[in-house]
Design a protein around this nucleic acid. Structure first.
Lengths: 359, 359
DNA sequence: TATTGATGCGGGAACGTTCCCGCACAAGGG
DNA sequence: CCCTTGTGCGGGAACGTTCCCGCATCAATA
């Protein structure tokens, strides 16, 4: 249904936009003078400046953004794409990590006077070639990501939230996976766990690989058995299946560390379906940035990857590189944060010391 | 070997971009010809077209987006701002409704060849005046929203997800609140409820007002007592307090309809804290687009506002208006969807008929 | 041979802005 | 009275692209 207050429409009437030169003519000035008056530049008498501004206001003049851009040589526009969910292009907003990364990126960009453009996951060159992008944020890039290659080839600086080799124009921010993982494992061990199961996923993402490697090294050092459940992909169903597999095993873990950022509720459900109590029968820690994790019963101990922090730092790096014109790659590590909550504390006592930090 | 035309600087090496004219010179052609060759336009021999393309490829030519925009007169860029959360500028991604609205908007825009630019909630004119925006999406605009006014004044068409009066360039998509609310209430009544409590919020959003009005009218018709719990603002804490108030009352409701999109888990918790079983002691229906609602125990009956649908239809309206140049306001209603699940079905029987639709 | 039409390519204006200049004029010092 | 310096404003080129033309050339037809 369409509300159309006036049925009989004439031509679309392509109202010509009022340009700088229109204002100039109306004011009896040159466009140079009007431009200077509006921008607060140049040497002008107050009378002329005021007159120009008043005329512009009266005519409803709006400068043409495209023309400014062409002159300025940059658009103050930053592309943003999440590369992980290539199959399900737009579902990443459902992930708290990416939701926070996205909004924090937009916020950080705007704080520097840039705006963020949302690109689709599967973005091909022709999707953004027409966009005057100055830089790009690539969340969870693939290895040898073609999209990243495209940007670099176009000499558009890129920042990603995964460590990459130093190539000109390719910047990165990441967390110290090894330290973070070990921090969680140490914490679970301190809570009495001796058989810590790890739930990871097959993925293009480096995160799971790094996590698995660190886990195995840690187990070897401690002489603990490595108990790994691997989901074919990081989904709720697959995660649950992996958990089931671990918990159904004859030598069941006494603690679980979920590397996959999944719904906190679903994870608790999966465990309870095996008749296990948390934390009495099983300690639990999850990688998650879902605020919900703090509101479950019991609240879940989480390792936060700190997407907001990553976004802020990454944008800093990116804009630094952009405005200095320096293409030498830069990178920074940000600290993860271990939020110790009920699922990893037996007896519900106060936590040992302040929230341990890793990194 | 190219003769470096501009910038004989020893500074950070501002590598001169290769322009169309550079390709033309290298290929021994005119820029007109090269342009036509690359764009697949004009009348050119295959030999020349190939040669031009090859030369462009060899030199790594990338067309300047800003220049194209200036020529084309439009940027194919659409602004996007969520106006509801003015106080907490970027937190809207945590709401499934807005998360879905955002990603669906970006997706729909791209399907039409447009890209979405994320604007901050509190966006002032100077934040986007430099952006070559062709149109804008305003999610949950305020009444007489100054940002909307700015856009309209700049002759930039706007679409919002709330019904607005017909002003030139202002388009809208909305759901039929009345029908939707009544649909839920009818459903709860059919499940045996006679004392249906409503939890709403004070807000700038029309949604709560419309909901409350429809509810009160419905109760009057049925002769049911209106039991309303109002949260001062739509937050988890305030919602819980409102629920508590209703459930602690001596004449407790036998069903609850939560108008506020809150965490499904938190709502179930709030009810259970009163020692009530769902759906045995209390039927429950919530306005929510959180996929989690389908995975709780029992799964929650929800009224979906269908943000993806709203975004898709809205983008259609917007781009239609944009490309036709027609500023006469248009609007469309989309159907809500009532997902009947466990919390509103006593005995866990199969549902009466297919998922009732409203609208 | 002259006329027409089609084909292949290039010249140059336009898009709307900013900014480097240059010019006119006034004031002040020698 | 001339020279210098400073002030106020405008002319016009650039930014890099697209696209409307016009000018050749050549084949086909009268």
């Amino acid at each position: 249904m369409t509300t159309s207050p006036r049925g009989g429409g004439k031509r679309p009437a392509p109202v010509p936009r009022v340009r700088l030169v229109d204002v100039a003519r109306e004011a009896g000035l040159s466009k140079t003078t009007v431009s200077a008056a509006l921008n607060g530049t140049g040497r002008l008498s107050d009378a002329v400046r005021l007159h120009a501004r008043e005329t512009a206001r009266r005519l409803g003049y709006r400068p043409n953004a495209s023309a400014r851009l062409l002159r300025a040589g940059h658009a103050r526009l930053i592309g943003y794409a999440v590369r992980e969910y290539v199959d399900t292009p737009w579902s990443y907003m459902e992930s708290p990590y990416f939701a926070q990364l996205t909004s924090a990126s937009a916020q950080a960009a705007l704080a520097h006077g840039y705006a963020l453009v949302l690109l689709p996951t599967h973005s091909a060159r022709d999707e953004w070639a027409d966009l005057p992008l100055d830089a790009a944020v690539m969340a969870d890039p693939l290895v040898g990501d073609p999209l990243v290659e495209d940007f670099l080839a176009a000499r558009i600086p890129v920042v990603s939230d995964r460590r990459v080799e130093g190539r000109p124009g390719a910047h990165w921010v990441d967390v110290d996976h090894e330290t973070a993982i070990r921090g969680v494992l140490d914490h679970l061990e301190a809570g009495g766990a001796r058989r810590i199961g790890l739930v990871g996923a097959h993925s293009t993402s480096l995160f799971y690989e790094a996590g698995l490697t660190a886990y195995q090294a840690w187990c070897r050092e401690r002489g603990f058995p490595p108990l790994v459940g691997l989901a074919p992909h990081p989904s709720t169903q697959a995660t649950r299946a992996a958990i089931d597999l671990l918990l159904a095993s004859p030598d069941r873990p006494d603690a679980l560390f979920i590397l996959i950022e999944d719904s906190p509720l679903s994870i608790l459900d999966a465990i309870r379906a095996h008749g296990l109590r948390v934390p009495e029968d099983l300690l639990l820690a999850c990688v998650s940035d879902d605020p919900m994790a703090g509101r479950t019963d019991p609240p879940i101990t989480t390792l936060s990857l700190r997407p907001s922090e990553i976004a802020t730092v990454g944008m800093e790096l990116l804009i630094n590189a952009l405005e200095s014109g320096d293409r030498t790659p830069t990178g920074r590590l940000v600290e993860t944060r271990l939020e110790v909550r009920g699922t990893s504390r037996r007896g519900g006592g106060a936590e040992a010391s302040g929230p341990p930090r890793t990194g």
